[in-house]
Simulated scan of single mutants.
Amino acid sequence: MIIKSILIDDEPKSRSNLRSLLLEYCPGVAVTGEAGSAVEALKLVRQLQPDLLFLDIEMGAASGFDLLKSLTGTQNFEVIFVTAFDQYGIQAIKACAIDYLLKPINILELTGAVDKALERIGRKKENLRIKELVSNLDRGEDEQRIAIPLSDKVEFVNVGKIVRLQAEGNYTHIYLEDGKKYLVSKTLKDYAELLERFNFIRTHQSHLINFKKIASYVKSEGGYIMMDDNSQIPVSRMKKDEIMKKIMG
């Protein structure tokens, strides 16, 4: 399991040092972002939805604790404090941090803290997966639900209400039949694997569609698919024969 982390520290050298240590000694942790202040971190956490924060405490105008207060109620991540000051241990415990590391960072203490984070995050994700699996047991195919992780919550959406998904780098846009649209920090490949058994098909490197929501297949202009929501979806050359065969039954 690879977990996503953000490094939050107002000292670039400290972030660079921690990033190097994680790369060398903690292969289960991917650094997906860095921030030099609590204000910058607030935006980044909401955008990237990380599993883990490596968080400094004293960062000028707003502290690491101030950041956590700003995120109260939306917190779906774990915290490891990394600081040069040793007087904040009790506050760190009250903030439910996984660990409290002092600079300069001790490698054994770092790997120990990361191991605890991996265990806790893994358990949390497995519990979520089991909860959703159990809730799906008595549902029909179109009523099966998937979890959509948003910045402030996890929303459960009926698979049958999804019209299509579109990739944007490491993010995915999810379009529903009622016009709602979500942007999720998971790749289209992740959703393709998840939704394949629900009759979703990959028409293109950037597009995954619900086969039941196809309105028409247009053969001109190289071929494209019109969906029930009037969106026009390209069909790659490699996928054309496969999709035509599926459409023709």
Rank of each mutant, 00 (worst) to 15 (best):
residue 13 K to R: 14
residue 48 L to Q: 09
residue 82 V to N: 09
residue 220 S to G: 01
residue 73 G to N: 02
residue 30 A to D: 14
residue 27 P to V: 03
residue 20 S to D: 11
residue 241 D to W: 03
residue 191 Y to Q: 01
residue 78 E to K: 05
residue 96 C to S: 14
residue 36 G to D: 02
residue 44 L to G: 02
residue 107 I to Y: 09
residue 147 A to E: 03
residue 6 I to Y: 05
residue 167 A to M: 06
residue 120 R to Q: 00
residue 55 L to R: 04
residue 119 E to D: 13
residue 34 E to R: 10
residue 12 P to T: 08
residue 215 A to S: 13
residue 6 I to L: 06
residue 71 L to G: 00
residue 93 I to V: 15
residue 164 R to N: 09
residue 48 L to V: 13
residue 57 I to Y: 10
residue 194 L to T: 06
residue 122 G to N: 04
residue 63 S to Y: 09
residue 160 G to P: 03
residue 87 Q to I: 06
residue 98 I to R: 08
residue 162 I to A: 03
residue 120 R to E: 04
residue 69 K to T: 10
residue 145 R to M: 10
residue 33 G to W: 03
residue 163 V to Y: 05
residue 137 L to I: 09
residue 50 P to S: 08
residue 202 R to V: 05
residue 192 A to D: 07
residue 24 E to A: 14
residue 22 L to I: 15
residue 39 V to E: 07
residue 234 P to N: 00
residue 180 K to C: 03
residue 61 A to K: 06
residue 167 A to G: 09
residue 98 I to P: 12
residue 236 S to A: 05
residue 157 V to W: 01
residue 5 S to F: 08
residue 2 I to L: 13
residue 185 S to E: 09
residue 191 Y to A: 10
residue 50 P to Y: 04
residue 122 G to L: 00
residue 132 E to S: 07
residue 39 V to T: 06
residue 129 R to F: 09
residue 234 P to G: 03
residue 209 I to F: 14
residue 132 E to D: 12
residue 215 A to E: 07
residue 77 F to N: 07
residue 242 E to N: 15
residue 184 V to K: 10
residue 119 E to R: 15
residue 149 P to G: 06
residue 211 F to K: 11
residue 22 L to H: 06
residue 220 S to F: 04
residue 231 S to L: 06
residue 94 K to C: 08
residue 81 F to T: 00
residue 221 E to H: 12
residue 241 D to H: 12
residue 51 D to C: 01
residue 231 S to P: 01
residue 215 A to R: 14
residue 199 N to H: 07
residue 55 L to V: 03
residue 212 K to R: 04
residue 137 L to R: 12
residue 82 V to C: 13
residue 99 D to P: 06
residue 173 H to R: 11
residue 243 I to Q: 02
residue 6 I to P: 04
residue 137 L to Q: 02
residue 69 K to S: 07
residue 211 F to D: 06
residue 213 K to V: 01
residue 36 G to M: 02
residue 146 I to Y: 00
residue 144 Q to S: 07
residue 17 N to M: 15
residue 245 K to S: 14
residue 58 E to G: 08
residue 134 V to Q: 05
residue 98 I to V: 13
residue 93 I to N: 11
residue 105 I to R: 11
residue 104 P to L: 08
residue 129 R to E: 01
residue 45 V to R: 01
residue 166 Q to Y: 11
residue 18 L to M: 12
residue 101 L to P: 05
